[in-house]
Amino acid sequence: MSCWETIADYGLRSIGIGERVLPREGYTLCQQFTLIGSGMIWNIYFGVLALCSGFLLATAVALGKASKNPVLQKASAWFIFLFRGSPLFIQFFFAYFVFLSLKPVSPIFDPFTSAWLGALIVLFLNTAAYSGEIFYGALQSVPRGDMEAADAYGMSGWSRFKRVTWPTMLRLAWPAYTNEAIFLFHATTLVYFSGFPAWQQRGDALYYASFFADKTFNPFIPYPILAFYFILLTLCVIGLFGLINRRLNRHLPQESRTKMKLKLNIIR
């Protein structure tokens, strides 16, 4: 069986397309690369969706924590504390438990016990709390001068927020937010590892990596393959966020813009 056939059979196995039975012999490098790569679909799915949806909530939570309304302020602060203060591992456990007990209430809740929705919600709330804290910190350090300038131009309310506060906040928060995005993608490996059950052997990259580690009794091949995929993914995230960073900073003078530039040192 050639490697192309393996890819055709198992390339989309993690979402239920292709061969139903996982490989039972050989456990070749090709099989391992294909299946673990197939599992990456789920890591990317969880990461991208949680990041995008979490971004909106994070902005809201940051504004809430900075607001003068005591109810909003307390609620946001507690939300951030609860999700930043506890391990994701435990959040998954409780979420699964709560979703299970909601199930008898109404069939609407049926999909919540599946990872694709239930785990996504947990990751969404988790990243919203972490990013919310980062955005809050950035919001606090928006230079006074910028706000005064906005006032001088007669901007207020929504237009001041949209055109001055928000872009400045993002610009300041971006390096830390990049880190958070990397952490979030890494956290997606916990979904099937300790949180939600895997149905019909459709799991994420770590699920397949541990499948092979179990079958071959050799952890030194599947886990480095997993690491390889994640380094690629992290490089993509860093690259993409770097592009956005450039766009956010494009109005700044040249020398303060190129902060992230890599210097190649030659031996002196």
């Binding site: 916990l190 580690a213 030194f220 886990y223 690491a227 490089l235």
Partner: peptide, 19 residues
């Protein structure tokens, strides 16, 4: 910095100790 940051800690833990 780049390699270790790029890999989920859990993946490291699963084979690194034996290594």
């Amino acid at each position: 910095i780049a390699i270790v940051r790029g890999v989920p800690d859990i993946a490291f833990f699963l084979f690194f100790v034996i290594a």
